[in-house]
Design a protein around this nucleic acid. Structure first.
Lengths: 130, 130
DNA sequence: CTGTATCCCCTACGATACTG
DNA sequence: CAGTATCGTAGGGGATACAG
C-alpha cells in the first residue's frame, strides 16, 4: 500500500569481499550486476537496494560500467516526470558467469580460509596491548 | 653458468587488471599464485619474477597469503647459508581455478570491453583542452 | 528523482635505506 | 639473501550539501 518498498529482496549477503577481497571492477560493480540480473532498475531502486552506498559512488560506478559497455542507460516516462533506468547489456551478462564462479569458490573454500586465518592470528599474538 | 638467471619465464602478461580490475586478494596475489604453480620459489626469485614489486609489498602480500593458508613458508639449506621458500598449499591451489576462469573471461570479452570503452571515450570528448 | 560538487580520510602501494 | 623501518602518495570510497 505504501508503495515505496523496494521491489527486490533486501540483498543477499554475497561473497564477503571484506574478509577476502575478490573484486570485479569497483567495490560495487558485481553487486550492481546482480541487481540488474532480473531486469532493468531505476537509480533510486539500486540506491536503496545497495543501502549504504552514496549517490556519488553509485553514479561513478554506473558511469564506468556504461563506459565499459556493461550496462545501458535510458530515460523512462514516469507519472511525476523524468526517470532513468539501467539495464545489463549482453557483455554485462557475461559478468554473471564470472560472479557465479567466484561465489562457488567462496561457498567451497572461504570458511576454511577464515578458519586458518583465525588459527594463525591466535597463534601469533601480534596485537593485544599497545 | 652465470647461474643467477630467473629459472622462470619473465612473466606472462596475464589479465591486465590495470585496464579492467579483476582482483583476487591484493594487487599481486594472483600473480604470486601463478608463480608458485609449478613449484616452490625463493623470495628473491619471486621478487625478480614480479619485477617492479618492492620488497616491502612482496613481504606483506606473502605474509597475508600465509595467514590465509594460501601458501606455506619454510627454510631451505643453501650453499651460502640460509634461504626461504614459499609453496602453494592445497587451499592455495584452489585459487588457480578461479584465476583460470578470470583469464578465460578476459580472453573472451576484454577486447570488446576495451573497444566499447574507446568508442565511448571518443564519442563523449570529455577531456581535451582544459 | 537523479544526479554534482566538495571535502575528507584511510588504506594500498611504492621508494629508499638499513639490518641479521 | 630475506627481510624491517620510514616516509610519501594517489585514489577509491564515504558524508554532506546543493542543483536541474
Amino acid at each position: 500500500m505504501s508503495g515505496t518498498n523496494t521491489p527486490l529482496p533486501p540483498f543477499d549477503p554475497i561473497c564477503p569481499m571484506s574478509t577476502f577481497p575478490i573484486q570485479i571492477g569497483g567495490k560495487w560493480t558485481a553487486m550492481i550486476v546482480l541487481c540488474l540480473e532480473s531486469g532493468p532498475q531505476r537509480f533510486g531502486t539500486l540506491r536503496r537496494h545497495l543501502q549504504p552506498i552514496s549517490a556519488k559512488v553509485l553514479t561513478e560506478t554506473l558511469s564506468t560500467m556504461q563506459r565499459d559497455g556493461l550496462i545501458r542507460r535510458h530515460l523512462v516516462e514516469d507519472v511525476d516526470g523524468c526517470g532513468v533506468e539501467y539495464a545489463l547489456t549482453s557483455l554485462g551478462r557475461t559478468i554473471l558467469g564470472l560472479i557465479e564462479h567466484v561465489r562457488q569458490w567462496t561457498r567451497e573454500h572461504l570458511n576454511e580460509l577464515l578458519r586458518l586465518r583465525e588459527i594463525f592470528d591466535s597463534t601469533n599474538q601480534i596485537n593485544s596491548a599497545s
